[in-house]
Design a protein around this nucleic acid. Structure first.
Length: 421
RNA sequence: GGAGAGAUGGCCGAGUUGGUCGAAGGCGUUCGCCUGCUAAGCGAAUGUACGUCCAUAAAAGAUGUACCGAGGGUUCGAAUCCCUCUCUCUCCGCCA
């Protein structure tokens, strides 16, 4: 959520910034609603003040007649208050609804562009592997060796579900543990294991709701939503809290399954395990002071990249342009790993600084000093990394000519002693 | 799932014959005094949000309103009375 004061005081600036995102937002309507809300609020507060003082007079009044007339006076005021409160309620409600639909503003150095074609590749890391044969796709390998069962996945759960078997199931488990250990031991994150189902407030807090309800799964019975990313439960751990300044930055790493309807991508990426309704992910979340959030973003990106470096996988860092920023992000960098079988750069991590946008929605604050007023924190997150796509890259990059996969050394303690699958 | 108890400020904890309660008291914290140092003692301060005024880079200041788990009701007036919900705790049952 944006600061309403920013819209109040610098409406044209906000509109100009939103234009850069190639989306529309009801800034003018918000401005008008805010003005009428404040006007009405003053009126109602003034009336309540009158009621208060009259009530006190009634208490002390000895004359029954005067008392009665004053009571009637308050009753009339109460009518006015009631009407005012109803209007105020509906205006506030409408204002809030609109505010929740306004995306975050882009950070100053975000390149302007209308879609992903205008993103900027910042740099490349690790050499692409050379093959003296045509590299196969992960789904080709997986099916032939009986390590991915697409048919049964579809049988039990429908399209975009698959079953990992034997060495592939184990490989994913090994990767999860490897990633968690690296982030905890080498990068200093604190591991958390959060719920995979959350209250609606959480999704509003991190910005998935109300706009993207149709991409999320929900249990209508309990009203709980399945998390589309660990960002949601982990960031919301601190909802409605004031964090001690000494605790910052808060750095968490969490493994969760993630659930997404993928309606926007209907028909896209239907082959393989690139895009399923359920996938595993190790997520990095940081909560920082406003001053340090940009530095922490680059630390976070480096931490995510470190996994790929340790696995010696070719990847590149891509800076998102304004038109490709996600709803809540102010800056976003994607890490894309190269998979030679499908011959694609796969997004394995999306690292964002949300500035105070989520903090404002989720009401997460910190105190600069003992006597300082609470201020909103900055929140960040990025995958570290998404499992299926890391799997794809690992399988396709480490395949041998005879159809096996060589396990990288760093994974040996996790996967076991088998050199080949 | 059955029975009972509870939810108050950073914490503990009063307040339940409705008004002077944003809320006693204690602890903690901050500042000052005292002290060779520390402790103790003494004095003062110490919630959040939003609005208005002032000011405008911001803060501070003044003032108003709301908030005693959440929502609704009774009343001139509710932390206090009534209803609904949520959560926590204890006991019993059931179960991974």
């Amino acid at each position: 959520m944006l600061d309403i004061k920013l819209i109040r005081e610098q409406r044209e600036f906000v509109k100009k910034e939103i234009e850069k995102l190639y989306v529309s937002a009801p800034i003018d309507a918000i401005f008008e609603l805010d003005a009428s809300k404040r006007k009405l609020l003053s009126t109602v507060e003034c009336l309540r003040n009158q009621r208060k003082s009259l009530s006190k007079e009634i208490e002390k009044e000895r004359d029954e007649n005067i008392k009665l007339s004053k009571k009637n006076e308050v009753k009339k005021i109460n009518e006015l208050i009631k009407n005012g409160e109803e209007d105020l309620g509906s205006i506030t409600h409408r204002l809030n609804d609109l505010m929740l639909l306004v995306p975050n503003l882009p950070y100053e150095d975000v390149p302007i562009g209308k879609d992903d074609t205008e993103n900027i590749v910042v740099s490349y890391f690790n050499e692409k592997k050379q093959f003296d044969f045509k590299p196969r796709t992960h789904f080709d390998i997986g099916e032939k060796k009986g390590l991915i069962d697409f048919e049964r996945g579809v049988k039990i759960s429908g399209t975009r579900f698959y079953v990992l078997k034997k060495a592939f199931a184990k490989l994913q488990r090994a990767l999860i543990n490897f990633m968690l250990d690296v982030h905890v031991n080498d990068h200093g994150y604190e591991e958390v294991y959060p719920p995979f189902m959350v209250h609606e407030d959480c999704l509003t807090g991190t910005g998935q709701l109300p706009k993207f309800a149709d991409t999320l799964y929900k249990d209508s019975d309990s009203g709980l939503w399945f998390v589309p990313t660990a960002e949601v439960p982990v960031t919301n751990m601190y909802r409605d809290e004031i964090i001690d300044a000494e605790m910052l930055p808060v750095c968490h790493v969490a493994y969760t399954a993630c659930f997404r309807k993928e309606k926007m991508s209907a028909g896209k990426d239907t082959k393989g395990i690139k895009r399923g309704h359920q996938f595993d992910k190790v997520e990095l979340v940081k909560i920082t002071t406003p001053e340090t959030s940009m530095d922490e973003l680059f630390n976070l990106i480096a931490d995510a990249q470190d996994i790929l470096n340790k696995l010696d996988l070719p990847h590149r860092l891509v800076k998102m342009c304004t038109g490709d920023l996600s709803f809540s992000a102010s800056v976003k960098y994607d890490i894309e790993v190269y998979a030679p079988g499908v011959a694609e750069w796969l997004e394995v991590s999306s690292c964002s600084n949300f500035m105070a946008f989520q903090a404002r929605r989720a009401n997460i604050k910190y105190r600069r000093g003992k006597d300082s007023k609470p201020e909103f924190v900055h929140t960040l997150n990025g995958s570290g990394l998404a499992l299926p796509r890391t799997m794809i890259a690992l399988i396709e990059n480490y395949q041998t000519k005879d159809g096996n996969i060589k396990i990288p050394g760093v994974l040996m303690p996790y996967f076991g002693s088998d050199e080949l699958l």
